[in-house]
Design a protein around this nucleic acid. Structure first.
Length: 120
DNA sequence: AATTTGACGACCG
DNA sequence: TCGGTCGCCAAAT
């Protein structure tokens, strides 16, 4: 018989949570600033830059996707023109077709985090 | 179970 | 600075 509804659905929720985490971070990037795929991956703490890229490819349209760029400052592959138009509109520091990360890079705020207090 | 596939990244010549 | 190459990581074939 077909399995009723095993913990399989749990993985779905897991993936969904990941997508949410990524999109939430993107929404926090201020206009005029950007974050790299790698930065976001690190902030989420799970998966890598490519996972973030996959999320953006599928759900990015719902957020300010142009504020997520590659480690070298270039916008998402296949969306260079649109991204650059939007970035310029926001006054993001550009040098040719790429964002000047030294000026525009934005880092997610430190996790509320379990800060290990001094051991005194 | 092996291989391919990405809105990626670090390295090297 | 520009390309090519290899490594990554999870999902889809």
């Amino acid at each position: 018989m077909s399995p009723p509804e095993p913990p399989d659905g749990a993985r779905e929720a897991y993936v969904e949570a990941y997508v949410e985490a990524v999109l939430q971070l993107v929404e926090q990037i201020p206009a005029g600033r950007v974050a790299t795929y790698g930065d976001l991956a690190e902030a989420v703490g799970r998966g890598g830059p490519r996972q973030v890229g996959t999320v953006m490819a599928r759900y990015g349209a719902a957020v300010s996707w142009w504020r997520v760029v590659r480690a070298d400052g270039q916008p998402a592959r296949g969306h260079e023109q649109r991204a650059i138009t939007l970035l310029r509109r926001e006054g993001t520091a550009l040098r040719g077709p790429r964002v000047v990360l030294s000026e525009a890079r934005w880092r997610p705020v430190d996790p509320p985090a379990v800060r290990r207090v001094d051991v005194s």
